[in-house]
């Protein structure tokens, strides 16, 4: 295909991606260097029969004029990145200087909003992803062995948790684990503790979110593995059987190696999707105990008075850096494959 025809076919798609994905990233980078205007205050003197009082208020007119002039705010350089709600260099130095032991350092770092979100996001990504792959694989093996007539309905119901919106899915579970809901009541009866609530402690909230994550994504791994199982070469399986391999050995030495590329694919998709986990935090109202990087950005943009664009943009830039670090091995591998082909 000639360059010209290629461009003729692809330009609308490229334009959309440049305008609404590439440029916004530039815009985020630009915004992260600015910070909201300081409030312009004015003093008003009220004189009444009992003397004069001065009151201080925000000068709305002057503020509007300022915003008109510089919509992004005033220039702050890299200040936003370094402040307490982002990388918090000063706070970290202070914590290391004044803390007695490791436990204290940990608790104090967990109180810094950015690190709290980063640690949860990483924990979620690296705990949910392997569990999804393992559970999905087990379901696929088992479903593959049941009678054919049952497979359709099983796949139908398995797809639900994955295709339903994360927000809706997490709400459905959230209502069930409510202390007045069915699972919440069941757990209370099981542990004989009428005050047990999954929402109360950070640990339980974390576990609930991990369980949700696995529930939501396992069907994806299941379907991919299930499709892969249909293509496992039967003669290899049979020759393994002739060689006296047991059922488990056949899975271990034939099926698993054969499905390895699929596991890599699932891992890649899951890493990308789990790193941006966001809706479950809202669905489970978990923000007090667990936040994620995406949630921090959302929260800044939703700030009560006016959106904190600078702060949201700085968190966004740091998140993007995280995504790129996460994808680096994949990109490198693709690059090597591509060069080998060329």
């Amino acid at each position: 295909m000639k360059h010209k025809t290629f461009m003729a076919f692809i330009w609308p798609s490229l334009l959309a991606m440049i305008l609404f994905i590439a440029l916004p990233i530039v815009s985020v980078g630009y915004q992260s260097l600015f910070i909201e205007h300081e409030q312009v205050l004015k003093e008003a003197k009220n004189c009444g029969p009992f003397g004069c009082t001065t009151s201080v208020s925000v000068d709305a007119e002057a503020m509007n004029a300022l915003r008109e002039e510089q919509p992004a705010g005033r220039y702050n350089g890299l200040g936003t990145y370094a402040n307490g709600s982002h990388l918090a260099f000063d706070e970290i130095t202070e914590i290391f200087a004044s803390s007695q032991n490791f436990g204290e350092i940990r608790t104090r770092i967990m109180n810094l909003p950015f690190y709290k979100a980063l640690i949860f996001t990483l924990a979620y990504t690296f705990i949910v992803t392997p569990l999804v792959i393992i559970l999905g694989f087990i379901i696929a093996i088992v479903v593959n062995s049941i009678p054919k007539a049952l497979k359709g309905p099983v796949i139908f119901f398995s797809l639900l948790p994955m295709l339903v919106t994360p927000l809706v899915g997490s709400l459905v579970l959230f209502w069930m684990i409510d202390s007045r809901g069915v699972i919440g009541a069941l757990l209370q009866a099981l542990f004989q503790d009428p005050s047990l609530s999954l929402k109360a402690s950070p640990t339980l909230t974390w576990i609930t979110l991990f369980v949700y994550g696995v529930w939501h994504s396992a069907p994806f791994a299941f379907v991919v593995f299930y499709a892969g199982l249909q293509t496992v070469p039967q003669d290899t399986l049979e020759s393994a059987m002739v060689d006296g391999a047991s059922r488990w050995e056949r899975v271990r030495f034939v099926t698993i190696p054969y499905l390895m590329p699929l596991a890599t694919f699932i891992a890649l998709m899951q890493l990308m999707d789990n790193f941006r986990v966001f809706e479950p935090i809202i669905g489970f109202s978990a923000a007090a105990n667990a936040t994620t990087l995406s949630y921090l950005i959302y929260n800044d943009l939703r700030a009560a008075e006016s959106p904190l664009f600078g702060s949201a943009a700085a968190t966004s830039m740091l998140t993007i850096v995280g995504v790129i670090i996460l994808l680096l091995p994949v990109l490198r591998r693709n690059w090597r494959d591509f060069n080998r082909k060329a």
Partner: peptide, 16 residues
């Protein structure tokens, strides 16, 4: 890479 971008980071680029 674009596919991996969290949507909310893009949104924070659009809003202003």
């Amino acid at each position: 890479v674009f596919r991996a971008m969290p949507h909310v980071t893009l949104v924070s680029g659009y809003l202003l």
